[in-house]
Design a protein around this nucleic acid. Structure first.
Lengths: 111, 111
DNA sequence: GGCACTACTGCGTAAGACGCGGTAGTGTCC
DNA sequence: GGACACTACCGCGTCTTACGCAGTAGTGCC
C-alpha cells in the first residue's frame, strides 16, 4: 500500500520532532527520518517542509560551510516552533487514538 | 490546528472500518465517523471516498428507498474490501507506532 | 576525467479533503 | 400553503502537500 498519503499533514510534525531533538540540515533530517522508520520519505518533501516551516516562522536557519562537501543549511526550533510541535503532537496523539478505536472493530469502543 | 491534512489517506481506512461494522449509506457513514471522533470530517469527502472505494472494487452498493426521506445508497464490504481493510489497518498501525516513537522525544527510542 | 557521495533547489504532477451550491424527498409549525 | 429544517446525494473548483525528476555544485577517489 502507498503510505505516502498517510504522511499528509504529518511530515510537519515529524520534521519538527527531529529538529527539536537537535538542530539539523536537510540532508541529515532526511536520513534521521528514514532511520526512524519513515523509510519512503522523499528528500524533496523534507526540503520543502523545512522551507515551509521556516517561512511560517517556526524555524531558525543558519548556514554552515562544510569541509567535506557543499554548505549545510541548518534549521533549529524557536519558541513558535516548540509551541507548534507541542500542539501538533497533541493533535496527532488524539487523532491516532481515535483511529485506533475505530480500527479495532469493536463497535462498543467507538461510543 | 487544521487536522484535515491528517486525514489524507486515512479516510479510506476509516470508512472501510465503519462500513465493515455494518453496511451503511453516505449520510449515515458521515454521522458514524463524527460520533467516533472525526468531528470535522466533511460530507463531500465521505461521499467521494465511498465512490472511490466502490470504483476500486472494494465495496458493493445497493439502493434502498426510504419512507422518511430520499433513497439511500448503501455500501458494504466485499472480500476485496475486507482484504484492503486488513492491510490498510496493518499499515496504519505500523505507521502510527513509528510516529509515536518519533514524537515521544526520546532520542533512544528512534534508534 | 569520470564517478560517487553530499547538499540543496525548482518545476510539474497527482491525490485527496473540503467548501459551496444545487437537487429532492419528507415532515413540522404557524 | 408556505417557510423551514432535516435527510440524502452529487458535482465543481480550490488548496495543500508529497513526490519524481532534473539540475547545480562541492569534495574526494581511482
Amino acid at each position: 500500500m502507498d503510505s505516502s498519503q498517510l504522511l499528509k499533514g504529518v511530515l510537519d510534525v515529524a520534521v519538527l520532532a527531529v529538529v527539536a531533538d537537535q538542530d539539523g540540515y536537510g540532508y541529515d533530517v532526511v536520513r534521521r527520518l528514514r532511520t526512524a522508520g519513515l523509510e519512503d520519505v522523499g528528500d524533496a518533501s523534507v526540503y520543502g517542509t523545512l522551507r515551509r516551516l521556516f517561512q511560517a516562522g517556526a524555524l531558525t536557519s543558519y548556514v554552515v560551510p562544510s569541509d567535506e562537501g557543499p554548505h549545510r543549511k541548518y534549521y533549529g526550533l524557536n519558541q513558535s516552533g516548540r509551541d507548534l510541535l507541542d500542539s501538533s503532537t497533541k493533535t496527532w496523539m488524539s487523532f491516532a487514538q481515535t483511529m485506533n478505536l475505530l480500527l479495532r472493530h469493536d463497535p462498543e469502543a467507538a461510543k
